[in-house]
Design a protein around this nucleic acid. Structure first.
Ligand SMILES: [Mn+2]
Ligand SMILES: [Mn+2]
Ligand SMILES: [Zn+2]
Ligand SMILES: [Zn+2]
Lengths: 162, 162
DNA sequence: GGCTAATTTGCAAGCGGTGCAGATTAGGTG
DNA sequence: CACCTAATCTGCACCGCTTGCAAATTAGCC
């Protein structure tokens, strides 16, 4: 997602108004890696701007998503999450705490996929699930670590974290 | 999912009753590759057993899912789909007609995943999206085929379809 | 055939999300 | 700066999917 100042420009250029509600959401979303739900954003926004409407949060997020500034992510069973990271990436979701973490896969096109006969693939989304580092350490602190094998071998990770 | 006769045995062994409603759903689900929604199953079931309750369909499907006989698949925006294929597989969803097709990936563990630091992956689910063969042919029949490249190269597919 | 716990059913209610219409306001105009 | 108007915000009703609940029914055991 673009920075608030740039979004402001883009909105005005399109004849869209830059309201205080929108400005607030721009800043709440910028560089936000928590994959927040509408409710989560509404809660935070309400503290800073009492009276803001839940409807407005829905509206603004949908608009941003339609503009390609946000990605919508449906995680099982819950409400839609919004992701200002619109670069190609995937997610790892913790079975215990439910948090989503960004992961990056470079060699997706090397996958051998069977049974795709005739299907023209445009995108692929991967969701890994398991236990996040935080929940894992809470578990192994008390109980002996079972030797489950990861189904993915992590790459060396050189320069992975910018 | 087990065959109806075997499910009957399993249910009785657990002290669960094998009602006509359950038996009907067992057969409707067996070898069903359509990834039906509750509504779809309810519609079909209603024709064969007028008066069956939507609530019962929900109940039974949830029970079967909890027993590991069905996989629940959430596809964006709609209702949950149920999948009697509980072998490890993935899905290709058509952007136009919404249908889900099973696909198989053998070399998932060869993926290089960055940023997984500490996450213990148990499962990975991939959803490919694009256009299915049927929708694609309807499109190319009228408009010149754009030379979009698939992001996955299909494997040779020898013996892929059992 | 009778008993009883499991199941089914119908309906109300919960939850996430959207349609709508009246009140409000950003931002352009003179 | 005051004014105008289209864009926006708000509150509320409502929708689609799913679950909770309790009364009525029934499978499976004796
Ligand atoms: Mn993300
Ligand atoms: Mn499937
Ligand atoms: Zn966690
Ligand atoms: Zn299609």
């Amino acid at each position: 997602m673009l920075a608030p100042a740039e979004l402001t420009r883009v909105f005005r250029a399109r004849g869209l108004k830059v309201t205080p509600q929108r400005q607030l959401l721009f800043t709440l979303l910028h560089d936000n890696e928590t994959h927040p739900t509408v409710e989560a954003l509404f809660a935070t926004a309400s503290k800073m701007m009492p009276g803001i409407s839940l409807r407005t949060v829905y509206q603004t997020l949908n608009d941003l998503a339609a503009m390609g500034e946000l990605q919508m992510v449906q995680s099982a069973g819950g409400s839609t999450r919004f992701d200002p990271n619109v670069t190609e990436h995937h997610h790892a979701q913790c079975d215990r705490c439910g948090e989503l973490h960004d992961v990056y896969v470079d060699d997706l096109d090397r996958l051998r996929v069977r049974n795709l006969d005739g299907f023209q693939t445009e995108r692929a989304r991967i969701v890994f699930s398991g236990l996040c580092a935080a929940c894992l350490s809470k578990t192994t602190r008390t109980q002996k670590q079972s030797n489950k094998r990861s189904i993915t071998k992590p790459s060396s990770n050189k320069g992975a974290n910018k």
